[in-house]
């Protein structure tokens, strides 16, 4: 691949926009939040985000937003990923590695089934607002 210029990038963006507008999506957004505090990073959150992005790109769903959060108080089960998708309960996954990240994309976001053994939806006591 030759070096991409800003102009190339702009053109690619336009093509992608067109593709997205032709695809039939019902306008409902999925939100994926990866914990990127010191604890998350030390446990491998960077790789998890990388895998999530790659899988979501493969799946081709453009209605997904990826955000990074700081520590959410679940340091003992980092890396953590929170998924909010229509038709599913808001879920926090813990002990996520590359394989689990793939499962979250295909099983949770695409097929609508929880990835059972990794659900850790109760934040630790020190972060719950009194």
């Amino acid at each position: 691949m030759s070096k991409m210029t800003l102009e190339d990038l702009r053109k690619l963006r336009e093509t992608k926009k067109l593709e997205a507008s032709q695809r039939d999506t019902d306008g409902k957004e999925t939100l994926v939040i990866v914990g990127m505090g010191t604890c998350g990073i030390a446990a491998g959150a960077k790789e998890v985000l990388d895998v999530m992005l790659g899988e979501l790109k493969k799946v081709g769903n453009d209605n997904v937003i990826i955000r990074q959060a700081g520590c959410m108080g679940l340091c003992h089960v980092e890396p953590t990923v929170e998924v909010r998708t229509p038709g599913m309960p808001d879920t926090i996954y813990g002990k996520v590695d590359a394989t689990v990240a793939q499962k979250i994309v295909h099983q949770h976001i695409v097929d609508g089934h929880l990835v059972n053994k990794h659900v850790y939806d109760k934040p630790a006591a020190d972060i719950i607002k009194q």
Binding site: M1, S2, K3, M4, L9, L12, R13, K16, A20, L53, G54, L56, K57, N61, D62, V64, I65, I66, R67
Partner: peptide, 19 residues
């Protein structure tokens, strides 16, 4: 933060880094 934009950004950085 949108997946399509983020993957394009990643592709852009990959191409700069390869160069």
């Amino acid at each position: 933060s949108r997946v399509s934009s983020l993957s394009l950004l990643k592709d852009f950085i990959i191409s700069q880094e390869e160069e």
